[in-house]
Nucleic acid binder design. Structure first.
Lengths: 138, 138
DNA sequence: GCACATTTGCAACCCGGTTGCACCCCGGCA
DNA sequence: TGCCGGGGTGCAACCGGGTTGCAAATGTGC
């Protein structure tokens, strides 16, 4: 069984050709992908399927959902095992100029003491500004 | 001169009736407001004006732009003075159940050492999960 | 091989947000 | 006071990300 298939199965997602392709695209990406980006990378797959697949992936804790810039983006969870805790999440950076999203993998999201009663399932830490490339050009 | 007017003028935004109303709505809110919420609070004002006004406010560092849940939200900057640095930003919490956004004013966004070259202008720290109210009900 | 569940693909739709454009209002100036 | 120019306003049309309804296809278990 290929790696993609065992990841899907391991998270309780039924294996299909489309899901393998979508998963593979996410595995190959160096930054979180938006639906639009997945659509262009996977021309054969309809956006409705991508939408539904990402929803399924999210439900089974296979991807994180990141709000950065103007589109939602999705990134594979790196913690393997499906317990869905979120200690692998890192900081992202959105460049206002080139509108790219960067993973700052080396920056873990700092722990924060949430008040009693708040049950946190996911954290979004996105900085906005100008990336090194765009600064140089300016 | 009323408080609203001096805030607008102080940030270099020309004073108009609509802008005063929008600013006042933001001042009275206990959590960041989305465009839709502003529209319902300010029935007389067209959404295009709200959109343009918020863009102007943002440009003049009068509001923060928060990505939480399904809509963008806007919140007044509390730092007075228009230098636009962001040391008053705090953590937000989005409840997946009731879809409300909470300000956790007491939780400052922890400092993070961004790599060389990244010029950060704003930080979004939004936790997602279940709020105390919804947990009780469940 | 058959009945049932799930997935797929397409089109239509929804909705937050923006834009184009004509009109209005206000401030400056003669 | 009357005219001029520029920004602000309001409406409608539009845009684009994302979802949904539905019928056909594809599996899956018996």
């Amino acid at each position: 069984m290929r790696e993609e298939e065992s990841i899907l199965a391991g998270h309780g997602v039924k294996v299909t050709a489309n899901r393998i392709l979508i998963l593979r695209a996410l595995m190959n990406a160096r930054a979180p992908l938006s639906m639009t980006e997945l659509e262009t990378r996977l021309e054969t797959i309809d956006k409705s399927i991508i939408s539904r697949t990402l929803a399924a992936f999210k439900e089974h804790h296979l991807v994180h959902h990141i709000l950065s810039g103007d589109e939602s983006r999705y990134e594979l969870c790196h913690v393997h095992g499906d317990h869905g805790n979120n200690d692998d999440e890192h900081v992202h950076f959105f460049c206002e100029k080139c509108r790219r999203t960067f993973c700052l993998e080396e920056l873990e999201i700092p722990a924060v003491a949430f008040p009693e009663g708040f049950e946190v399932s996911e954290i979004n830490f996105v900085a906005t500004g100008i990336c090194p490339d765009c600064r140089k050009k300016a």
